[in-house]
Protein backbone atom coordinates (compact mmCIF):
# COMPACT_ATOMS: atom_id res chain seq x y z
CA UNK A 1 0.00 0.00 0.00
CA UNK A 2 2.73 2.42 1.00
CA UNK A 3 4.67 1.75 -2.16
CA UNK A 4 2.01 3.62 -4.13
CA UNK A 5 2.22 6.50 -1.70
CA UNK A 6 5.90 7.15 -1.58
CA UNK A 7 7.26 7.91 -5.06
CA UNK A 8 5.74 11.45 -5.29
CA UNK A 9 6.90 12.19 -1.78
CA UNK A 10 10.32 10.78 -2.64
CA UNK A 11 10.69 13.00 -5.70
CA UNK A 12 9.57 16.06 -3.79
CA UNK A 13 12.12 15.36 -1.09
CA UNK A 14 14.82 14.71 -3.66
CA UNK A 15 14.09 17.97 -5.41
CA UNK A 16 14.09 19.89 -2.13
CA UNK A 17 17.33 18.27 -1.04
CA UNK A 18 19.01 18.98 -4.35
CA UNK A 19 17.94 22.62 -4.18
CA UNK A 20 19.25 22.86 -0.64
CA UNK A 21 22.48 21.12 -1.53
CA UNK A 22 23.14 23.25 -4.60
CA UNK A 23 22.26 26.40 -2.69
CA UNK A 24 24.52 25.45 0.15
CA UNK A 25 27.36 24.47 -2.13
CA UNK A 26 27.04 27.71 -4.05
CA UNK A 27 26.90 29.94 -0.97
CA UNK A 28 30.16 29.05 0.68
CA UNK A 29 32.57 26.28 1.43
CA UNK A 30 31.76 26.79 5.09
CA UNK A 31 28.01 26.76 4.23
CA UNK A 32 26.76 23.38 5.30
CA UNK A 33 28.68 21.75 8.12
CA UNK A 34 27.18 18.44 6.95
CA UNK A 35 29.16 18.65 3.70
CA UNK A 36 32.39 19.77 5.31
CA UNK A 37 34.26 16.52 4.89
CA UNK A 38 37.54 18.28 5.63
CA UNK A 39 36.41 18.17 9.25
CA UNK A 40 37.56 14.82 10.66
CA UNK A 41 34.53 14.83 12.98
CA UNK A 42 32.15 14.39 10.02
CA UNK A 43 33.48 10.93 9.33
CA UNK A 44 34.40 10.14 12.91
CA UNK A 45 30.75 10.41 13.92
CA UNK A 46 29.94 7.65 11.42
CA UNK A 47 32.48 5.31 13.00
CA UNK A 48 31.17 5.99 16.50
CA UNK A 49 27.60 5.86 15.18
CA UNK A 50 28.26 2.43 13.68
CA UNK A 51 29.71 1.20 16.97
CA UNK A 52 26.76 2.59 18.96
CA UNK A 53 24.26 1.12 16.48
CA UNK A 54 25.93 -2.29 16.64
CA UNK A 55 25.96 -2.26 20.45
CA UNK A 56 22.30 -1.20 20.55
CA UNK A 57 21.40 -3.92 18.05
CA UNK A 58 23.07 -6.60 20.13
CA UNK A 59 21.46 -5.38 23.36
CA UNK A 60 17.99 -5.14 21.78
CA UNK A 61 18.21 -8.44 19.92
CA UNK A 62 19.71 -10.46 22.80
CA UNK A 63 18.11 -8.96 25.87
CA UNK A 64 15.51 -6.19 25.63
CA UNK A 65 13.23 -7.56 22.95
CA UNK A 66 13.22 -11.22 24.11
CA UNK A 67 12.26 -9.93 27.55
CA UNK A 68 9.24 -8.11 26.09
CA UNK A 69 8.41 -11.16 23.98
CA UNK A 70 8.48 -13.31 27.12
CA UNK A 71 5.97 -11.07 28.89
CA UNK A 72 3.72 -11.09 25.83
CA UNK A 73 3.99 -14.89 25.54
CA UNK A 74 3.19 -15.27 29.25
CA UNK A 75 0.08 -13.19 28.77
CA UNK A 76 -0.90 -15.27 25.75
CA UNK A 77 -0.56 -18.57 27.63
CA UNK A 78 -2.34 -17.11 30.65
CA UNK A 79 -5.26 -15.94 28.52
CA UNK A 80 -5.56 -19.23 26.64
CA UNK A 81 -5.28 -21.12 29.96
CA UNK A 82 -8.00 -19.01 31.53
CA UNK A 83 -10.20 -19.44 28.49
CA UNK A 84 -9.72 -23.20 28.64
CA UNK A 85 -10.50 -23.28 32.37
CA UNK A 86 -13.63 -21.23 31.73
CA UNK A 87 -14.64 -23.61 28.95
CA UNK A 88 -14.09 -26.61 31.25
CA UNK A 89 -16.10 -24.99 34.02
CA UNK A 90 -18.91 -24.28 31.60
CA UNK A 91 -18.91 -27.89 30.40
CA UNK A 92 -19.02 -29.11 34.03
CA UNK A 93 -21.90 -26.75 34.79
CA UNK A 94 -23.75 -27.95 31.69
CA UNK A 95 -23.42 -31.62 32.68
CA UNK A 96 -24.53 -30.78 36.23
CA UNK A 97 -27.61 -29.00 34.90
CA UNK A 98 -28.37 -31.95 32.64
CA UNK A 99 -28.03 -34.32 35.59
CA UNK A 100 -30.35 -32.22 37.72
CA UNK A 101 -32.89 -32.09 34.91
CA UNK A 102 -32.72 -35.86 34.42
CA UNK A 103 -33.09 -36.47 38.19
CA UNK A 104 -36.08 -34.13 38.33
CA UNK A 105 -37.74 -35.87 35.42
CA UNK A 106 -37.07 -39.27 36.98
CA UNK A 107 -38.43 -38.20 40.36
CA UNK A 108 -41.51 -36.72 38.71
CA UNK A 109 -42.26 -39.91 36.78
CA UNK A 110 -41.67 -42.01 39.90
CA UNK A 111 -44.02 -39.83 41.89
CA UNK A 112 -46.62 -40.05 39.14
CA UNK A 113 -46.31 -43.83 39.08
CA UNK A 114 -46.74 -44.15 42.85
CA UNK A 115 -49.72 -41.80 42.76
CA UNK A 116 -51.28 -43.92 40.03
CA UNK A 117 -50.61 -47.10 42.00
CA UNK A 118 -52.14 -45.63 45.17
CA UNK A 119 -55.23 -44.49 43.26
CA UNK A 120 -55.53 -47.91 41.67
CA UNK A 121 -55.17 -49.61 45.04
CA UNK A 122 -57.75 -47.36 46.64
CA UNK A 123 -60.18 -48.00 43.78
CA UNK A 124 -59.76 -51.75 44.13
CA UNK A 125 -60.25 -51.66 47.89
CA UNK A 126 -63.35 -49.55 47.51
CA UNK A 127 -64.73 -51.92 44.92
CA UNK A 128 -64.03 -54.91 47.19
CA UNK A 129 -65.71 -53.27 50.13
CA UNK A 130 -68.72 -52.39 48.02
CA UNK A 131 -69.02 -55.97 46.77
CA UNK A 132 -68.80 -57.41 50.27
CA UNK A 133 -71.41 -54.99 51.47
CA UNK A 134 -73.66 -55.79 48.54
CA UNK A 135 -73.35 -59.49 49.22
CA UNK A 136 -74.26 -58.99 52.86
CA UNK A 137 -77.20 -56.83 51.96
CA UNK A 138 -78.33 -59.37 49.43
CA UNK A 139 -78.12 -62.08 52.03
CA UNK A 140 -80.07 -60.04 54.57
CA UNK A 141 -82.63 -59.25 51.88
CA UNK A 142 -83.09 -62.94 51.12
CA UNK A 143 -83.40 -63.96 54.76
CA UNK A 144 -85.83 -61.12 55.34
CA UNK A 145 -87.88 -62.14 52.30
CA UNK A 146 -87.94 -65.77 53.59
CA UNK A 147 -89.11 -64.59 56.99
CA UNK A 148 -91.75 -62.39 55.38
CA UNK A 149 -92.98 -65.29 53.20
CA UNK A 150 -93.05 -67.63 56.21
CA UNK A 151 -94.92 -65.06 58.28
CA UNK A 152 -97.42 -64.49 55.51
CA UNK A 153 -97.97 -68.21 54.97
CA UNK A 154 -98.54 -68.81 58.64
CA UNK A 155 -100.79 -65.80 58.70
CA UNK A 156 -102.74 -67.12 55.68
CA UNK A 157 -103.09 -70.54 57.34
CA UNK A 158 -104.55 -68.87 60.42
CA UNK A 159 -107.04 -66.91 58.23
CA UNK A 160 -108.66 -70.17 56.96
CA UNK A 161 -109.07 -71.51 60.45
CA UNK A 162 -110.45 -68.19 61.74
CA UNK A 163 -112.77 -67.90 58.77
CA UNK A 164 -114.02 -71.48 59.21
CA UNK A 165 -114.66 -70.96 62.94
CA UNK A 166 -116.28 -67.60 62.36
CA UNK A 167 -118.46 -69.00 59.60
CA UNK A 168 -119.62 -71.97 61.81
CA UNK A 169 -120.37 -69.74 64.77
CA UNK A 170 -122.27 -67.31 62.54
CA UNK A 171 -124.24 -70.12 60.88
CA UNK A 172 -125.10 -71.74 64.24
CA UNK A 173 -126.20 -68.40 65.65
CA UNK A 174 -128.24 -67.53 62.64
CA UNK A 175 -129.76 -70.90 62.03
CA UNK A 176 -129.49 -72.44 65.40
CA UNK A 177 -128.15 -75.66 64.12
CA UNK A 178 -124.71 -76.96 63.82
CA UNK A 179 -123.54 -76.82 60.20
CA UNK A 180 -121.77 -79.52 58.42
CA UNK A 181 -118.16 -79.13 59.01
CA UNK A 182 -117.19 -80.35 55.58
CA UNK A 183 -119.52 -77.91 53.81
CA UNK A 184 -118.15 -74.88 55.65
CA UNK A 185 -114.62 -75.90 54.89
CA UNK A 186 -115.43 -76.12 51.20
CA UNK A 187 -117.20 -72.79 51.21
CA UNK A 188 -114.31 -71.00 52.93
CA UNK A 189 -111.93 -72.69 50.56
CA UNK A 190 -113.97 -71.50 47.59
CA UNK A 191 -114.20 -67.93 48.97
CA UNK A 192 -110.47 -67.78 49.56
CA UNK A 193 -109.78 -69.19 46.13
CA UNK A 194 -112.06 -66.54 44.61
CA UNK A 195 -110.01 -63.79 46.34
CA UNK A 196 -106.86 -65.46 45.14
CA UNK A 197 -105.65 -66.27 48.57
CA UNK A 198 -105.64 -70.01 48.67
Amino acid sequence: MSRRLFPPCRFACLAAALLLLSGAAASAAEGMPQLNFANPLTLAQIVWGAIIFAVLYVIFARSSLPQVAEVLANRETRITGDLEAARDAKAAADTAVAEVNAATARARSEAQASINAAVEQAKKEAADRARVLNERLEQQLQTSEGQIAAARNSALGAIREVATDTARVMVSRLTGRTPDRQAIDDAVGQALAARGQA
Binding site: W48, I52, V55, F60
Partner: peptide, 18 residues
Protein backbone atom coordinates in the same frame (compact mmCIF):
# COMPACT_ATOMS: atom_id res chain seq x y z
CA UNK B 1 38.95 9.87 19.99
CA UNK B 2 36.82 12.34 17.97
CA UNK B 3 33.64 11.49 19.88
CA UNK B 4 31.20 14.17 18.70
CA UNK B 5 28.05 15.55 20.31
CA UNK B 6 26.14 13.63 17.60
CA UNK B 7 27.44 10.40 19.11
CA UNK B 8 26.53 11.59 22.61
CA UNK B 9 22.94 12.05 21.49
CA UNK B 10 22.98 8.60 19.86
CA UNK B 11 23.99 7.17 23.23
CA UNK B 12 21.28 9.20 25.00
CA UNK B 13 18.68 8.01 22.46
CA UNK B 14 19.77 4.41 22.90
CA UNK B 15 19.67 4.73 26.69
CA UNK B 16 16.16 6.23 26.52
CA UNK B 17 14.95 3.36 24.33
CA UNK B 18 16.53 0.85 26.70
Amino acid sequence: VNFTQANTFMVIGGLLTM
